[in-house]
Write a protein that binds this DNA or RNA. Structure first.
Length: 288
DNA sequence: AATCTTGTCAACCGCGTCCCA
DNA sequence: ATGGGACGCGGTTGACAAGAT
């Protein structure tokens, strides 16, 4: 039992009416869960009173939504989820709740924490602002491709072997990454794969917003039958379905057709991508 | 073994928006 | 039209754990 409300210098009556702060106890959790099971959620202030909790309605709501709700997912974010967060953040910025809506079982708080602890850490190491265009470009050029590869590695052993044999960029385990020039077609090859997730149909402009990632998706060939992606257009012209099962990457097939001039990796053509710095220091997915 | 540093994440806070009387 | 309460969101804090020295 930790941090209870400070009762120093207060009468017993005052203590009784004191609102509790700090970590929730098991008893409080049980009270809240049972109350919501019987009466439903909402009307948090009255709920707190009726349930006998010495907490603010706000605190009850937060505890329920961020921790107790049955469909909350626990554990590390998958590469798929990380990729989703990166992409959605590039579109919406710090709209955590909006981003969370597209990650079932994940809370805005969790996503926000992920961004602050993992993503901003990378930005700090780069000495660039995490909300700057440079960092966004770095995410697009390096992190997303790396995540895509990670997804590939976890979803398909066969394809993973193929990727390794191709000495694909983004694999932080590959020492040859160090020589990757900025804006290299290989760098973006996985990004173009990103668009190929649309399955048998070419990625349409309404499945990826025009201001997302690159202005015009590359032309991609038809995907193998194993690629079972279906991006679902939302009312805001975004996609939602990230069913990564059966995900398949073809790391080299789109290189030739990908117009790298549309992809602003050139900004990286300076100190931090030209040498080993980027690949040595950043996007080390083992640490994600 | 002790201390320090760093990372994680639950929880709080302030503010803006919505809704209703 | 407006004032107040409820709610939701994003920023921040602080406790704790794990790792490094």
């Amino acid at each position: 039992m930790a941090a209870v409300a400070n009762s120093v210098g207060r009468s017993p009556n005052e203590e009784d009416s004191e609102l509790r702060k700090g970590p929730w106890t098991l008893d409080e959790d049980t009270l809240l869960i049972h109350y919501i099971a019987n009466h439903g959620e909402g009307h948090w202030n009255s709920l707190a009173k009726c349930a006998g909790l010495k907490r603010t309605g706000k605190s009850c709501r937060l505890r329920w939504l961020n921790y107790l709700k049955p469909d909350i997912k626990r554990g590390n974010l998958t590469p798929q989820e990380q990729l989703m967060i990166l992409e959605l953040h590039s579109k919406w910025g710090n709209r955590w709740s909006k981003i969370a809506q597209h990650l079932p079982g994940r809370t805005d708080n969790e996503i926000k924490n992920y961004w602050r602890t993992r993503v901003q850490k990378q930005a700090r190491q780069l000495n660039i602002e995490s909300n700057s265009k440079r960092f966004l470009d770095a995410v697009r050029c390096f992190w997303m491709p790396t995540l895509l590869q990670k997804m590939e590695q976890t979803s398909s052993r066969t394809s993973s072997d193929y990727l390794t044999s191709q000495n694909s960029v983004g694999a932080t385990v590959s020492p040859t990454n160090n020589s990757v020039p900025s804006g290299s077609p290989k760098v973006v090859s996985h990004v173009s794969d990103y668009y190929s997730l649309a399955g048998n149909s070419s990625p349409s402009h309404n499945s990826l917003s025009s201001d997302s990632l690159i202005s015009q998706p590359p032309q991609v060939p038809e995907q193998p039958a194993s690629s079972s992606y279906a991006f679902e257009a939302l009312d805001d012209n975004y996609y939602v379905d990230y069913d990564m099962e059966g995900f398949s990457l073809d790391p080299v097939s789109e290189i030739a057709s990908f117009d790298t001039s549309q992809f602003d990796c050139q900004m990286a053509g300076n100190y931090w991508t030209s040498g080993s710095y980027m690949t040595d220091t950043l996007w080390n997915m083992e640490g994600m």
